[in-house]
Nucleic acid binder design. Structure first.
Length: 570
DNA sequence: GCCGTTTTCGGCCCGACTGTTTTCAGTCG
């Protein structure tokens, strides 16, 4: 269920959303949103803090601190319950539709009684919105497209949500099993996860099934048997537990990891060798005898293949590469020597510079770049003076962390024409500049391509940040001639970012493979807005692996000197 | 509701874009 901070933060975020729907003053709504973000990003566990300790959290004052204590004692927040009674949860869900905010959601609820996304999806084609003030044809179209975008993600969840559940289940069951691991699309590090598959090896499955069904995160047991039990979590995610004998572990793990297409290929290879591969093992067809099944390695080996990393098992050429012995040595989390994209509370981060740097030092990195937003993202209120003052602070801090080289950078805004915030002269004062698209996501392909290529060609720009600007389940990637962009990146030594945020994972894996063909180099960046966000790098690494990247392809696995040479900042 | 070398009130993330509107409201970053 996550750490107590996340639960409390979610309650205040819900409170803020509901207040904004009821038309509460914007500053009040923002106060709760800011508090929610601060609580989520706060290093200490809120459930252990007293009133004084809680008030130390930025943006948490008397009123919010008391609500946290109330919640701890009574399990609820009175004011939240009151507004929940007025606004159904489904109305809040409407605001998750892109282009539909709190004001429109309230109109739909009050005028038409619509209180769910499904109801709205039916009401529009039925013409029920016609004549409703503020809802023209284009608005209806945008809403339907937004719903479509959400539906396409379907019941799938982002990888971090699934990972949290999977790790909780594995941790709870491991003491009862000889082996226990999550498999399926999560093990392959897909960007969204439909359901979580957990595999355990044990002689007797009963205690595992019992413990699994009794976990606190279980809201419903869907099916329960000797070899498989399925549950639904309180948040609606399905988790399947399969228990196999230890001698079948390897075959079962291989089978339940998938993908289906990869398994089809491995089974074909088995058939041609007179073998049969199933979740129970690799068998000799003639004798029916078990050949191997205890580990994945021996299953693959008996098929004449090296072990294939799960992130490659998509039937995307990995079988041929395995047969030829040309599987890449994939980049690992431990290969990273630094992070090239992060924020502090000078702009929209949560943590002060000192805390971000201390947390980066604790990662054991060799270098770390602070890249707060530049002035053209107006809401961040950046100025030249603030940026230069931060640079001084960064230099001073560097002396306190001798093992860690601090890079002072910025995240520039790529404007409509591909220009960025500052002239080259000012840019040259930074150690590293990330440049990203933050607006005008719907430009046509030609305009967008010209725009991004121009930014990439700017000698002051070193990294193209979250290149497609997609938000998984919420915003489409921008339309762009990526081959033209990658070609320009390779030519100008502009690094292409893999932003590790779970709702971005941008550049996506399919485009990484395409970029690789152009000789592009990549950086796997946290885009951290809080110290806890460095943990997201594992998802960035998973995405990089799905793109077949080796450490040599990823600049932040390089020593700083080589990185500087490549960027031309040495 | 939070915050403060403006310190107990009066500000608070500002501006662009979109669609609808007939002069601007809603949404987003």
């Amino acid at each position: 269920m996550g750490r107590p901070n996340d639960e409390v933060a979610e309650l205040f975020q819900e409170f803020a959303d509901l207040l904004s729907i009821t038309g509460e003053a914007a500053y009040k709504v923002r106060a709760y949103e800011k508090a929610a973000r601060s609580i989520a990003g706060y290093a200490e566990d809120v459930s252990t803090l007293d009133l004084k300790g809680l008030r130390q959290i930025p943006n948490v004052g008397e009123a919010i601190a008391k609500k946290i204590l109330d919640h701890r004692e009574t399990g609820t927040i009175r004011q939240l319950e009151a507004v929940r009674a007025k606004i159904p949860a489904g109305v809040r869900a409407l605001t998750a539709i892109p282009t539909l905010g709190p004001k429109k959601a309230l109109v739909l609820y009050e005028e038409l009684g619509i209180s769910s996304v499904d109801e709205l999806a039916e009401a529009i084609p039925a013409g029920r919105l016609e004549g409703l003030k503020g809802f023209g044809a284009k608005t209806e179209e945008n809403i339907l497209h937004g719903i479509e975008l959400m539906k396409r993600a379907g019941d799938r969840v982002l990888i971090d949500v699934a990972m949290e559940v999977a790790e909780e289940v594995v941790a709870a069951l491991s003491p009862l099993a000889e082996r226990c691991e999550y498999a399926g699309s999560l093990r392959r590090s897909r960007e969204t996860i439909g359901d979580v598959d957990v595999l355990a090896a044990a002689a007797d499955s009963a205690p595992l099934m019992e413990a699994f069904a009794a976990l606190p995160l279980v809201s419903e047991v869907i099916a329960r048997g000797d070899t498989k039990t399925s549950i639904r979590t309180t948040k609606g995610l399905q988790v399947d537990l399969r228990v196999v004998p230890a001698e079948s572990w390897g075959a079962a793990l291989q089978y339940f990891t998938g993908s289906k297409a990869h398994n089809v290929r491995t089974r074909e290879i088995a058939v041609r060798a007179g073998l049969k591969l199933s979740e129970y093992g690799l068998f000799d067809v003639e004798s029916g005898e078990l050949v191997v099944s205890a580990t994945e390695e021996e299953v693959y080996e008996r098929l004449g293949l090296p072990w294939v990393p799960p992130t490659l098992r998509e039937d995307g050429g990995e079988i041929d590469a395995a047969l030829k012995g040309t599987l890449p040595r994939l980049v690992q989390l431990a290969d990273l020597r630094g992070d090239l994209h992060s924020h502090t509370d000078l702009t929209d981060g949560i943590a002060p510079l000192e805390e971000m740097v201390a947390a980066a030092a604790a990662q054991g990195w060799e270098y770390f770049a602070i890249t707060d937003h530049a002035p053209n993202l107006f809401m961040q209120r950046m100025t030249d003076e603030k940026m230069l003052a931060q640079r001084e602070a960064v230099h001073a801090l560097g002396e306190r962390h001798p093992g860690l080289t601090l890079l002072h950078g910025t995240e520039l805004n790529i404007d409509a024409d591909g220009e960025v915030d500052w002239p080259e002269e000012f840019l040259s004062g930074f150690d590293i500049c990330v440049a990203s698209v933050h607006s005008l996501f719907t430009q046509d392909r030609e305009t967008m391509t010209r725009r991004i290529v121009r930014a990439v060609e700017n000698p002051g720009v070193h990294v193209l940040g979250h290149p497609t600007a997609r938000l998984i389940g919420r915003r489409e990637p921008v339309d762009c001639d990526w081959d033209a962009v990658f070609e320009a990146c390779a030519r100008h030594h502009t690094v292409v970012e893999i932003d590790a945020f779970p709702d971005r994972l941008d550049l996506p894996a399919d485009l990484i493979r395409r970029a690789l063909r152009h000789g592009v180099r990549f950086s796997i960046d946290s885009d951290a807005h809080a110290t806890g966000h460095f943990a997201n790098l594992r998802y960035g690494v998973g995405t990089a692996q799905r793109g077949w990247l080796t450490p040599d392809d990823v600049v932040n696995t390089w020593p700083l000197e080589r990185l500087r040479d490549y960027l031309g900042t040495g």
